[in-house]
Amino acid sequence: MTATRAVPAPRRSAARAGSAFLSAHPRARLALLLSAPLFWLGVVYIVALVLLLVTAFWSVDSFTGEITTEFTLDNIVEVVTGSLYQTVTLRTIGVALAVTVIDVALALPIAFFMAKVATPRMQRVLLIMVLTPLWASYLVKAYAWRSVLSQDGILEWLVSPFGGHTPGYGLPATIITLSYLWLPYVILPIYAGLERVPDSLLEASGDLGGRTWPTLRLVVLPLALPAIIAGTIFSFSLSLGDYITVNIVGGTSQMLGNLVYTNVGAANNLPLAAAIALIPIVIIFGYLFLVRRTGALDNL
């Protein structure tokens, strides 16, 4: 062979040396890659949670509003034993469950249609339609529902000829509005989950003699279950923490979020607010613990 023309060797530089080092040391590479996000997660998230937890064990001077950093269980005891907190907690869980059930019932057929029936073009159109409401402000949507559900709103106008009436402001209005607000968050994971189910599995079921219902029950639902649970985590936890919607359309009802809000704002009692805020956190952790085994957390 003839001598090949020399290709110049890559220039030596500090960056190159650094890259070479990282290429040879995967652990260093990982550490460098993860340190910034981990720092963020650690400081902003974990520390904030821990501070919340710690604050719950402090108390506040009622007149000056100064926080007293002496350890006390008073807030926790009050939150656990106070009938107000029990009532509101039960109401909040009830609302969150109702919203979740409604959302799953609505999201399943929509997501199934999007993932398995619609043409790719239709699929994109539907996806955009599902996502569009997310571009509008939360407040705008909540106030829109306030106007829809009003005594002289569209709903009243629509149903009054049939003897129906708008539910007015209250818990039903809250459940309707929250269901609307969180629906995209439930559709999307279920859609993604169903999308991952190969069409051939549905065909295989039909091929083996499975009609529509057995196919849905034995193949689609079990495979979509983790995605459904992932969706319920969104609707459930978002409902659990909400206080704005209930303020706008909830009439006189209040949820845990309102108690936290009043205690941070009006009452200026951060420790009690922290103690109340622990209720939804405990509930959500309990829920996550329950669903952990289903593999739903991989679908988030």
Partner: peptide
């Protein structure tokens, strides 16, 4: 009764 008492009373009223 101080403002803190009023606050918890108010929360109780709203239920």
């Amino acid at each position: 009764t101080d403002y803190a008492a009023w606050t918890s009373a108010w929360q109780e009223i709203k239920g």
